[in-house]
């Protein structure tokens, strides 16, 4: 099975996040943390309208996690005089994003947040491996993978959509192997902006260099015209 990849990146100023959500969804997303709003924007960008009702999975990682939400909750609990507001507690739980997204994206069948342990780098290796596994075994026809981070200064989302649609010439597809990379494909770092690197890369083949799970070779290969 050939797994097609669609990379996509989005950088937003926090003040424009709400407008971006309204533009993407046609409605505001009320009482949603920035990471949830970023997830909604990206999923709507990557899924065709007909795909939004069909089963898909969302695997997302984050370096900062719900940092601002956690600080707000800590202030309420430790310095405040009463119980926190329920939503302020829920916002510290990344799992809540799925519940806010499923009414908008009825096909969302599984969502999983993987917080990262290191301040630098990412773990696309694990996300892509797990997503490919589900595609190969027919669990889903589409899996969205993302790295999401929101801070008071900027909101950043990097995405890769994995699907089994026919490949367009020049588009990336995923090659997984349990053996070491067989040729001299240039390396690409496992960093949050991997999708942006794929968009700008000119190579025909790239090998993912990751600190995580070094036991599987992950390569990105551009599809070539049939001969």
């Amino acid at each position: 099975m050939r797994i097609a990849l669609t990379p996509f990146s989005q950088h937003l100023a926090p003040a424009t996040l709400g407008a971006a959500v309204r533009a993407a969804l046609g409605q505001p997303l009320r009482r949603a943390a920035p990471y949830t709003q970023l997830l909604a924007c990206g999923a709507f960008q990557l899924l065709l309208p007909a795909e939004r009702d069909m089963p898909f999975a969302l695997l997302w990682q984050t370096t900062r996690g719900p940092r601002e939400e956690t600080l707000a909750l800590l202030a309420e609990v430790c310095e405040g005089s009463g119980e926190p507001m329920p939503y302020d507690f829920l916002a510290t739980q990344p799992a809540i994003a799925a519940a806010q997204l499923q009414p908008l994206l009825p096909g969302l069948a599984h969502a999983q947040c993987s917080p990262l342990a290191h301040a630098t780098g990412a773990d696309w290796q694990s996300l892509l491996t797990q997503a490919a596994n589900w595609l190969v075994h027919g669990r889903y026809a589409r899996v969205l993978c993302a790295h999401i981070d929101a801070s008071p200064e900027t909101c950043t989302a990097h995405w890769i959509k994995l699907h089994t649609a026919p490949l367009e010439i020049g588009a990336w597809h995923l090659h997984l192997s349990n053996n070491p990379s067989s040729d001299d494909a240039p390396g690409i770092a496992d960093t949050p902006d991997l999708p942006a690197q794929l968009v700008s890369a000119s190579a025909a083949k790239l090998a993912l260099h990751s600190r995580h799970a070094p036991y599987r070779t992950v390569e990105f290969v551009r599809s070539q015209p049939a001969r």
């Binding site: 984050t62 370096t63 900062r64 996690g65 719900p66 940092r67 956690t70 600080l71 800590l74 202030a75 609990v77 430790c78 310095e79 917080p115 990262l116 342990a117 290191h118 301040a119």
Partner: peptide
């Protein structure tokens, strides 16, 4: 984190 004085300086990576 609850034992830290405000303002709290949390680690950058949330799963550290």
């Amino acid at each position: 984190f609850e034992a830290l004085p405000a303002p709290r300086n949390l680690p950058i990576a949330c799963a550290s």
